[in-house]
Structure formats: structure tokens, C-alpha cells
């Protein structure tokens, strides 16, 4: 583990930070300038020589670390709000328990104390081949090939993959945010824009090194969560080998409103199985206006894994993901 030398700057304001990063030809893999927030992904990958920026821009002192309730009922979460602060915030615990649960089932207490909201949105895959520079990887070095397809792929994706990349997105927080229909707010050289969560992450296709719509100079300033839906129940269920400190083999974030035994509104996202936090409107449509019964959940679960392309070691994730979703829906639909 070693790092090459790099310049380190602490910009006085967002404008300087944005200008500094905009010098990089890309904001994706291979960026020559990187923002540093919690550093739990970036520093790790720099030690592994997977990331090698010439310049690191520390944004921890920018005023982006607040959580506030907005007049329109949305919750605004600053980019550098620590995962532990977000998970334990009273408004999150009250209105968005799925988000709190997802964060608290990820990583360890020490990592959550460092990791940030924006950093977690940009969390990189844990694919072994991506993290080992002795191995080929299209995501790390485009055109070198994907060693995972015929290699150790137990943990990797079954949905959204391409022949160039089967890496999965390891974030728990993102799965909850997908189900909550969060909006990501970015300030870039050309001004501000709001990106719906579903449009933030990209499919690998032929360009697995392009992971998000973030462009050079784009600084994530905050995330907003829509006002909580009255009467909804939300939860996060994560399945993994050991009881703690492991990435999901399959996980489900569900936000459910049930009235008189019928599901009136459903938002569902899944983790561990997709190349990005996996949410489809079809699964939600299969639940909405249906009775809150096992049959409904079964049908939604079948739909959730439709089109799955298992690899040599991860076909079990199809059945595991189904059981995960069915159980999460069952728990969410239970009368309090």
C-alpha cells in the first residue's frame, strides 16, 4: 500500500473548489483532481494505486455539513454530513427510518463517523479486480478486459451488467435514497442543477469507467429528500454472510403505504444485486393497488429479478434477493 505524491489544497469557498476540480479532464475514473470529504473510499483507493490524483481538494471546511428541514417539507442534507450524524438525526429517525437503518447496517461505527453523504453517493465498487492493479479491469483501465466475469464474482451484480463489467454498487445508503426518491444537488462551472436519484448513476455498458453523470467541476452540495408520505412505513433489510461489517449480498429498501389491506403506494429499491442502486417502476406497479398478501409480494419479487444475468458464482443471489424483498415487504406491511 503506497501513494504517489499529490498536491493538497483547502479551498476557502465552493467556487475555488469547483475551479480546481474543473481542471481535471474527467470527474470519473482517472480524474487528476479529486474532492476529499471523508476519504473512506478515496484514500483507500489511493493506497491501492487505483486512484492517483495529482491534486486533492479538501472540502471538509466548506459549509456543507448541515441537515435542515425546508419550508416545502423536504429535508436538506449537506454533502459533508457524516453518515453517523445523518443516521441518528431526529428527522431521519422519525420520517425516513429506512435511511437510518441502511446507513447503520453499513460499514463500521468508525467508518460511519468519517464517511459523508456525497462521498457515499460516489462510493466505488468492491469488485476485487477493480481494486487490484495486477488484474485486468475495464472500469479501472478501459480496454483491459473484465477478469471478474470468469473469476471470483460471488459478490457481484446480476442486474444491469454488460460484457465489459459486472461490478456492483456496494452502498447501503444509496439503496434507501433511491427508494426515497432523493434529489442530488450539484453546483458546477455552469451553475446549479438538480439530479433525480434514478438518473444519477449510469449503467456500465461499454463505458464502465463512467459511473455517474458528474462532470468536471461538479461539486455535490446537498441532497434533498421529498416530504415524508403520510402513513408510510419504511425499512431496510440487508442479507449477508456474517452479522455485521459486510457488504450486502442482497438488500431491500421499501417505503410502503398500506390502507385497508391494500398497498396504496410502494417504493422499492434493492442493493447488492445491481450495477447501481436498483429501482424499477415495474416492481412498484406490481405492488400498488394490490392486496398486501404473500402472492403480491411473490409477484413483485419475481419482477424484481427479471432479466437477471447470473455469473459462475452468484446465481444464488436471484433466490436470495427474492426472499429478501418478500420478507422486507411482509415486515413493512405488518400493522404497527
Amino acid at each position: 500500500m503506497r501513494m504517489k505524491s499529490f498536491a493538497f489544497i483547502r479551498p476557502p469557498d465552493s467556487a475555488v473548489a469547483i475551479a480546481a476540480q474543473a481542471e481535471s479532464p474527467t470527474a470519473q475514473q482517472g480524474a487528476s483532481v479529486r474532492f476529499l470529504a471523508g476519504g473512506t473510499t478515496l484514500v483507500d483507493l489511493m493506497k491501492l494505486n487505483v486512484e492517483g490524483p495529482d491534486k486533492v481538494v479538501d472540502i471538509n471546511r466548506l459549509p456543507l455539513d448541515q441537515i435542515e428541514s425546508l419550508p416545502d417539507g423536504c429535508l436538506k442534507i449537506g454533502a459533508t454530513v457524516r453518515n453517523s450524524a445523518l443516521a441518528n438525526h431526529p428527522a431521519v429517525l422519525r420520517d425516513y427510518p429506512v435511511l437510518s437503518q441502511a446507513i447503520l447496517q453499513g460499514a463500521s461505527a468508525q467508518l460511519r463517523n468519517r464517511a459523508t453523504t456525497a462521498g457515499n453517493l460516489l462510493q466505488r465498487t468492491r469488485c476485487i479486480y477493480f481494486r487490484d492493479t495486477a488484474m485486468p479491469c475495464n472500469k479501472r483501465e478501459p480496454g483491459t478486459g473484465c477478469a471478474a466475469i470468469h473469476g471470483h464474482n460471488r459478490n457481484l451484480a446480476i442486474l444491469g451488467t454488460s460484457e465489459h463489467c459486472i461490478a456492483n454498487n456496494p452502498s447501503d445508503m444509496c439503496v434507501a435514497m433511491a427508494a426515497l426518491e432523493a434529489v442530488i444537488h450539484v453546483t458546477g462551472p455552469k451553475g446549479v442543477r438538480a439530479i433525480p436519484f434514478a438518473e444519477f448513476h449510469l449503467l456500465p455498458g461499454e463505458t464502465p469507467h463512467q459511473e455517474t453523470v458528474i462532470q468536471p467541476g461538479d461539486l455535490i452540495t446537498h441532497v434533498t429528500l421529498p416530504p415524508p408520505v403520510p402513513g408510510n412505513k419504511s425499512l431496510y433489510l440487508k442479507l449477508r454472510d456474517r452479522a455485521s461489517y459486510e457488504f450486502a449480498l442482497a438488500s431491500a429498501a421499501v417505503v410502503l403505504t398500506v390502507a385497508g389491506g391494500r398497498i396504496t403506494r410502494a417504493r422499492v429499491a434493492m442493493g447488492g444485486i445491481g450495477v447501481k442502486p436498483w429501482r424499477t417502476r415495474e416492481v412498484e406497479a406490481a405492488l400498488e393497488e394490490q392486496p398486501a398478501t404473500e402472492t403480491t409480494y411473490q409477484r413483485a419479487a419475481e419482477m424484481a429479478v427479471q432479466g437477471a444475468r447470473p455469473q459462475s458464482e452468484n446465481a444464488f443471489k436471484i433466490e436470495l434477493a427474492k426472499r429478501c424483498l418478500i420478507h422486507a415487504l411482509k415486515l413493512a406491511a405488518q400493522p404497527a
Binding site: 476485487i128 481494486r131 461489517y245
Partner: peptide, 29 residues
């Protein structure tokens, strides 16, 4: 329940050679 060093066919590398991919019991277990 967890531990195994996996030698990859082809490269012969112990492929899960880190503490995230070589699963061991943690306190919660």
C-alpha cells in the same frame, strides 16, 4: 461459516486476499 482462502484458477492467486473479502467472525457473530 465464513473463512476460506480462494485460489483462482488461471492466475493461481489467493483472490480474496483482504479483510473485506476474506470473511471472519466479527463481534456481532
Amino acid at each position: 461459516l465464513f473463512e476460506q482462502t480462494q485460489y483462482e484458477h488461471g492466475t493461481g492467486a489467493p483472490i480474496n486476499s483482504n479483510l473485506a473479502d476474506y470473511i471472519m467472525a466479527v463481534n456481532a457473530d
